[in-house]
Structure formats: structure tokens, C-alpha cells
């Protein structure tokens, strides 16, 4: 059984996403509309990670020691970049990170069904619903920024 590995992977990604939302907010302080939303989404991601913690503990005893979760985890976001194009690239990274969370949620939802764990299923479905909005927001914000950053800015 490897459910705990995947749960840890999701937990890590969500924690990373929460930090990334905070960092992008700090890294682009002059973007007029980023503050409120990024802060809100950061809190959301952190809460999601917390909801998972009891399940990591629940499945730990049955989970075999390998493969290393570190090897599963690739850092997708490493600090903000300045300027309009930088903002677009940062949002792009966050989008990939959120996608990682999203797909992990979908896998764990299947796993939860296999393990007959309704509680876990409920939690990852809630996470999935919130992630869907996060992805939509990132896409919306990128669509706002892309034409100017790619075509106009020098």
C-alpha cells in the first residue's frame, strides 16, 4: 500500500502552493489586485494540507518504506521574477503546482474509494473543488496579463 506516500506528496504540494501564493503576493506588491486573492488562496491551501494530516497518520503504518517521497516531489516554483513577463511566468509555475495538487487529489480520491474510506474521500473532494477554483483564477489572471506581457512590453 502506498496511499500515505501519495498523501504526503499532496500535503507537500499543498504546503508549497500555500507558500507560493504568499510569495507571489510579496514578489509583486504593485500588482493592484493580487493581495486579497493570493492571501485567501494561501490560507485555503494551508487548511487543505491540515485536513490531510490525520490521514497521513492513518495510513502510515500500512505503507511500505519505499519509494522515497522525496523522489516523487519536484519543486515547481522557486521564487518570483520581476516585471510583467516575470508575473506571467510565476503564475504559470503556480498553475503547474496547482495542477499537481489537483491530479494528486483525483488519484487519492480513487484510492480512498478503494480503501472504503468515505472520510478521506470527502476531504479530497472538498480539496478538489477548491483547487478547481484556484486553477480557474490562475488562468483568469494569466489571461489578463498575457497579451500585454507577450506582445506589447519591451
Amino acid at each position: 500500500m502506498h496511499l500515505a506516500h501519495y498523501l504526503r506528496l499532496l500535503h507537500r504540494s499543498q504546503t508549497a502552493l500555500a507558500e507560493a501564493f504568499r510569495e507571489i503576493r510579496r514578489g509583486h506588491p504593485h500588482e493592484p489586485d493580487m493581495y486579497g486573492v493570493c492571501e485567501r488562496l494561501a490560507v485555503q491551501c494551508r487548511d487543505q494540507a491540515r485536513w490531510l494530516e490525520p490521514f497521513v497518520r492513518r495510513y502510515e503504518p500500512w505503507t511500505s518504506p519505499s519509494p522515497e517521497p522525496e523522489r516523487l516531489h519536484q519543486p515547481l516554483f522557486a521564487g518570483t521574477r520581476p516585471g510583467g513577463l516575470g508575473l506571467l511566468r510565476d503564475l504559470h509555475d503556480l498553475y503547474l503546482l496547482a495542477t499537481e495538487c489537483d491530479i494528486a487529489c483525483a488519484m487519492i480520491a480513487q484510492g480512498a474509494q478503494g480503501a472504503r474510506d468515505d472520510e478521506l474521500l470527502d476531504v479530497v473532494r472538498r480539496c478538489g473543488g477548491e483547487l478547481a477554483v484556484q486553477l480557474l483564477w490562475l488562468r483568469t489572471r494569466m489571461r489578463h496579463a498575457a497579451p500585454q506581457a507577450l506582445v506589447v512590453a519591451s
Binding site: P32, H144, P147, S154
Partner: peptide, 19 residues
């Protein structure tokens, strides 16, 4: 129509960034 209309503060932001 390739993207949403730019709102006021974003217009001033683009002016600030020089685009």
C-alpha cells in the same frame, strides 16, 4: 476580444511598467 477589458488600476500599472 482576446482577453478581458483592462481595468483602471491595471491601466495605470501598465503605464508604471512602461508598456
Amino acid at each position: 476580444h482576446w482577453g478581458p477589458p483592462t481595468h483602471a488600476m491595471q491601466i495605470f500599472r501598465y503605464a508604471e511598467q512602461g508598456s
